Structure formats: structure tokens, C-alpha cells
Amino acid sequence: MVQTYKTAVIGLGSMGYGMAQSCLRAGHPTWGIDINADAASRFRAEGGQPGDLPDDLNAVAVVVLNAAQTEAVLFGASGIAARLAPGAVVVSCATVAPAFAREMEARCADLGLLYLDAPISGGSAKAALGALSVMAAGSPDAFAAARPLLDACAETVFELGDKAGPGSAMKSVNQLLAGVHIAAMAEAMTFGMTQGITPEKFLSVIRNCAGTSWMLENRAPHIVDGDYSPKSQINIWPKDLGIVLDVAKSAGFSAPITAAALQQYMVAVGMGLGPEDDAAIAKVYARNVGLTLPKAKE
């Protein structure tokens, strides 16, 4: 580990902000960058470094929404890749297709940069605690260069290969399950309501039965509380499940359950629910059968 490990986190959303805070707690000088000026200012007030990004950064975590934003951050008109010193590592955390991760690795290598294909899982709470799971793939040198950042931000790092691609492939598998589980939770809860089972009773019983899942236990309380403030937005799922279906198509693989879940998220977006917490997919089912979901508690 270098004596002073200079880190930048680009994208201070619910996950990136927690990662930036975790780097600060680990003692790394950390710059936080976001198009939301309030988020960047708040991070600086908490101890983030002021001013522009220096040219001698050791690591940059790119925690943006998608492939297009990742590419823009690295290679766009104001892209950071051209400013980084050879040997710096790019830790790419967005959910992207494996082929895109391989392309970014190659373009970074052309500039003498290391690249870690490192999508993340765990949600905003675990990001804030430095307890994320990271599905990572890259060269041994990329892992070594990223290790201080990974140690600060992650509870578990899965080392899935020595080239980019397997990390993003594993994340697509995870997102298939996560997106389907959220939709299935909402369907089951609202189905129960048609049978006189309240959301509160559903949660108290099913979380102790074989039908539970991590997503059910995490998201169902949002519906019970009538709280759809976005910990993870509906808008994420058309992108992520779309990636799953694109990868599946390229493999000649049929994923009908994923496709059905994607349609429900698309309906939710059409209802104007895109910026809400992804538990709001329950509103699609509730609307279709005339149910009234719990209201936010006063």
C-alpha cells in the first residue's frame, strides 16, 4: 500500500456516497464528484478533499448509472482517463454488459491504466458501512492497486477472473434474481391482500417461512411503512434487466421470468413511478386490482 492513497469516487448517489465515506474513514484523501452540486458540497463538508481532481490519483471508483455514463466519465470530452498517471486503477462499479467491461479494460490499458471490473451489491446501508459485496475481475496488478479502496468499501470481494468481464457477468446473474425477487415480493404481498392478509401480517409470517428472500425482507418493510423514498429506484430495473436479456440473447438463452418482471417495471415507469423506491412496483399490482396500499405513517 502506498503511503498516501489518493482516491476519487465519481458518482455520489446512494451507493457512491457511502463508498466515498468509507474511503474517508479508512484515512484516504478522497475526492467526491457528482453532477449534483449539493451532494459534492455535502461530501466536502464531511471531510472530502476540496478542489479539482489531482493528476496523481491512485484509484478512481466510477459509481454511475450505466455504461454510457461510465464511458463518458472515462473517455468523454472531460474524461478522466487521459489525466490519470500510468499505473492508476479504475474501479468500475456500474452494472454493464461483460463485453463493455472488456472494451473499457482495453481502452484503459492503451493509456497505461489498470481496470477492475467491479460491480457492487449490498445497497446504500452496506455502502455506508463499508460492507459491500464486490464481484470483481481484472489483472493481479489491478487487484493489488485497488486493494486499499476495496478494503475500505467491501466486506466481501469475490475474485472472479484475471480479465474484465466475469465480474459484470456475475452481476447480471445477481440482478436477474434481485429484480425478479422484488417483483415477486410485490406480487405475493398484493395477492395476499386480496385474501385479507395485511402487508404487516404478510411480512411477519413470510419472513419466517421458506418463501422469504433477502429482497423481500429488505423491501417489504418499505411498503408496510408507505415509504417510497428511493433507496434503489424503479428506474434502475429496466436498464439492469435489459442488460440481462441482452446478454441472454447473445448466449441463445431464454429468460422468460426476467422478461415478465421487466414488463412490470416498465409499467411502473409508465405510471410515473420511476424515481421512487423499487418497492413501489407493488403500486402496479395494487392499481390493477383496486387495492389501497399502506400510507406513510405520520
Score class of each variant (00 low, 15 high):
1 M>E: 11
3 Q>A: 15
4 T>W: 00
7 T>M: 07
7 T>F: 06
10 I>V: 15
11 G>N: 03
15 M>A: 06
17 Y>I: 02
18 G>D: 02
25 R>N: 11
28 H>C: 11
28 H>T: 05
30 T>F: 01
35 I>G: 06
36 N>Y: 05
36 N>W: 03
37 A>T: 14
43 F>Y: 01
44 R>K: 12
46 E>C: 10
46 E>H: 12
48 G>A: 10
48 G>H: 05
49 Q>G: 08
50 P>N: 13
51 G>I: 09
54 P>M: 11
54 P>E: 10
55 D>A: 15
60 V>N: 05
61 A>I: 15
62 V>F: 01
70 T>L: 13
70 T>K: 02
70 T>D: 13
74 L>W: 10
74 L>N: 09
79 G>H: 02
79 G>M: 02
81 A>G: 13
82 A>M: 03
83 R>Q: 15
84 L>H: 03
85 A>R: 10
86 P>M: 09
86 P>R: 06
92 S>R: 05
93 C>A: 13
93 C>N: 07
97 A>R: 10
98 P>T: 04
98 P>H: 03
98 P>Y: 02
99 A>S: 12
102 R>D: 08
107 R>H: 03
107 R>G: 06
109 A>I: 08
109 A>Q: 11
115 Y>C: 09
116 L>E: 05
121 S>K: 01
121 S>C: 06
123 G>K: 07
125 A>M: 09
129 L>S: 11
132 L>K: 02
134 V>F: 04
134 V>A: 04
138 G>E: 04
138 G>H: 06
139 S>F: 12
139 S>M: 14
141 D>C: 12
141 D>A: 15
144 A>H: 12
149 L>Y: 09
153 C>K: 08
153 C>T: 15
156 T>M: 12
157 V>L: 08
163 K>N: 14
163 K>I: 12
166 P>Y: 07
168 S>V: 11
174 N>C: 14
175 Q>A: 12
175 Q>W: 08
177 L>H: 10
178 A>C: 10
178 A>E: 00
179 G>T: 04
179 G>P: 05
180 V>A: 08
181 H>N: 14
187 E>V: 08
187 E>D: 01
188 A>G: 11
189 M>P: 00
190 T>W: 03
190 T>L: 05
197 I>W: 05
204 S>H: 13
205 V>P: 02
210 A>Q: 05
213 S>G: 04
213 S>V: 04
219 R>A: 00
220 A>V: 13
220 A>W: 04
222 H>R: 15
222 H>N: 14
227 D>H: 07
227 D>M: 08
243 I>T: 13
247 V>M: 13
247 V>Y: 01
249 K>M: 13
250 S>K: 12
253 F>W: 12
254 S>I: 11
255 A>V: 14
260 A>I: 07
262 L>I: 10
263 Q>M: 12
263 Q>C: 11
265 Y>C: 06
267 V>P: 01
267 V>A: 14
274 G>L: 01
274 G>M: 05
275 P>N: 00
275 P>E: 04
276 E>S: 00
279 A>G: 14
281 I>W: 00
281 I>Q: 00
282 A>N: 04
288 N>S: 15
294 P>I: 11
294 P>G: 12
